[in-house]
Amino acid sequence: MKEILLEIKHDKTGKFISRPNRYLAEVEIDGNIELVHVHDPGRLKELLIPGAEVYIKRAVNPARKTRWDLIAVENNGETVLLNSAYHRYIAEAYLKNFAVSEFGVYDYIKPEAKYKDSRLDFYMEKGEEKIWLEVKGCTLTIGKAAMFPDAPTKRGLKHLRELEELSRENKAAILILIFRKSEYFMPNFETDPEFSEKLIEISQKGVGVYPIQLEFTDGKIFYRGIIPLCSKNL
């Protein structure tokens, strides 16, 4: 099944030069080197390779120090979305597409729902059922596996513990947006063993883990289906 979830436009293409820090990239645009904002704080070292073609968009605020936002990169014939600001909108489009969403029809949805001292990405209600949902974006592949995280994430671990706590009285789940072609998903034990072990643990205690395969083609995000969760490499 292939369903359009969201359209994401860009203004120009450029050539990636370097990444001075995790929030900035140097990109050659129309022959000039410009600083471009990188919204994804992950390492992305297998994607942001010098000379790679990148897609950029003008910043909404003209007074901002960086005039451009990084949207995506070309890698081995795939366009890979790198701007995590879109993750919530992609997830919301998926949840509202009742034909494909694993969560079906709901009565109420609230983005950025407060829980204790945190905010989880979505809170939903279906009749008497309460559903808490966190969203993560995955751009790392090794062999046939999509893997998350690509850098240690204490914030991500905190979210897993909160979902585990919530699952005792509600339905709790994590939606993993996979932006590269993969056959299965597995947590990245080498990079963050604590997060990875907790993800497998809570998946066995009733927290739903939904790795959804996406495709970014011609400025559109397509839903391709659910791929399996594996606890170790195949």
Rank of each mutant, 00 (worst) to 15 (best):
R64M: 12
P50T: 10
G137V: 02
R58N: 09
D107A: 00
A63D: 09
Y123K: 13
M124C: 11
A59G: 07
K116F: 15
E112L: 04
I142M: 14
E125S: 06
V135L: 11
Y115P: 00
M147C: 09
N97E: 10
T141E: 11
L81Y: 03
A151E: 10
C138I: 12
L140V: 06
V60S: 08
K110A: 05
K126P: 00
K96Q: 10
V73F: 14
A72K: 06
P149Y: 08
F122H: 05
L82T: 13
T141D: 12
T141K: 15
A72V: 03
E74N: 15
E74P: 00
Y123C: 01
K126E: 04
A151R: 15
R67F: 07
V54P: 12
G77M: 11
L81Q: 09
I90G: 01
Y123V: 04
E78H: 09
D69Q: 08
V54T: 12
I131Q: 05
P152S: 06
E102R: 07
Y89Q: 07
N83D: 15
V100N: 04
T66C: 02
V80W: 11
Y89L: 05
N61I: 06
K130I: 15
I71C: 04
R64Q: 07
A146L: 13
I142E: 15
E134V: 09
I131T: 15
P152T: 07
K96T: 01
V135N: 07
L95G: 04
Y108D: 08
K126V: 05
P62N: 04
E78V: 08
P152Y: 06
K57L: 14
P111N: 10
N83C: 10
W68Q: 14
K116T: 13
K65H: 12
L120H: 08
E134K: 10
S118C: 12
E53W: 02
P152N: 03
D117A: 07
T139K: 13
T66N: 11
K65P: 08
E112D: 13
K110W: 00
K126R: 14
L120Y: 10
P50I: 10
A52K: 14
N75G: 02
G51D: 12
D117Y: 14
P62D: 00
A59Q: 08
R58T: 05
R88M: 05
G104Y: 03
D69L: 11
W68E: 13
A93C: 06
M124R: 10
L81M: 15
R67E: 12
A52S: 15
Y89E: 07
R58C: 00
R58M: 03
V60P: 00
P152G: 07
R58V: 03
K96R: 13
K96G: 01
V80C: 07
S101D: 03
P50M: 14
K144G: 04
E112T: 02
R119W: 07
A52P: 10
M124T: 06
N97H: 02
P50V: 11
